[in-house]
Computed example of a mutant assay.
Amino acid sequence: MGTLVGYVRSGDPDLTNRQMAILLLVGQTQGPHTVRGLASRLTVSKPVVTRALNKLASLGFLRRQRDEADKRNIFISVTERGGRFLERFQALIERSQPDPAPRTGALANRSPASGPLQQASSFERRIA
């Protein structure tokens, strides 16, 4: 929750879950990335990925580059601006890590290993 509240307060553009997932996939996994490959990894249609890419490209977070070897392929990569956005988001995750203080209520039985960073790495394992 702390990460999302920090994100809302940050003034960065509001991304949908789908846009964020695509940006994280491209930014944190080995490429090259294509629309077809992203659609397959997320189990969504290519038009769904294309719409998200259009928004991310308009924000300057991702760019499309035609493959010089095979003009039919278009590779997706993170821009410098997109990389800075991901770094700020990572910093929000790190700052919102729970204190080692005793937990109460609904969080009392939750292990520290299930915090945001652990969840992010399990996200990466699921999409890999």
Rank of each mutant, 00 (worst) to 15 (best):
M1I: 05
G2T: 07
L4I: 15
V5P: 01
G6Q: 05
Y7L: 15
Y7H: 13
V8A: 14
R9A: 09
R9Q: 12
S10K: 02
S10F: 03
G11E: 10
D14R: 13
L15M: 09
T16M: 05
T16Q: 08
R18C: 02
Q19G: 09
Q19C: 08
M20L: 14
M20I: 00
M20H: 04
I22Q: 04
I22G: 04
L24E: 05
L24F: 00
L24C: 03
G27V: 02
Q28R: 05
Q30D: 05
G31V: 00
P32K: 04
L38E: 01
S40H: 12
R41M: 10
P47H: 05
V48D: 11
V48G: 06
T50Y: 02
R51A: 14
A52N: 12
L53I: 13
L59Q: 04
L59R: 01
L59A: 06
G60M: 05
F61M: 10
L62I: 14
R64Q: 05
R66W: 01
D67M: 07
D67W: 02
E68L: 12
E68C: 02
K71P: 03
R72G: 07
F75C: 04
I76V: 15
S77W: 02
S77N: 13
S77P: 00
S77F: 07
V78W: 03
V78F: 00
T79K: 00
E80A: 12
E80I: 12
E80L: 08
R81Q: 11
G82W: 01
L86E: 10
L86H: 05
E87Q: 06
R88E: 08
F89R: 02
Q90N: 13
L92S: 02
R95L: 10
R95E: 13
R95H: 10
Q97G: 13
D99T: 13
D99L: 12
D99P: 14
R103N: 10
T104S: 15
T104D: 12
G105K: 11
L107Q: 10
L107I: 10
A108M: 08
N109C: 14
N109T: 15
R110N: 03
R110M: 14
S114L: 08
P116V: 11
L117T: 12
Q118R: 07
Q119S: 06
S121M: 12
S122K: 14
F123M: 14
I127P: 08
A128L: 05
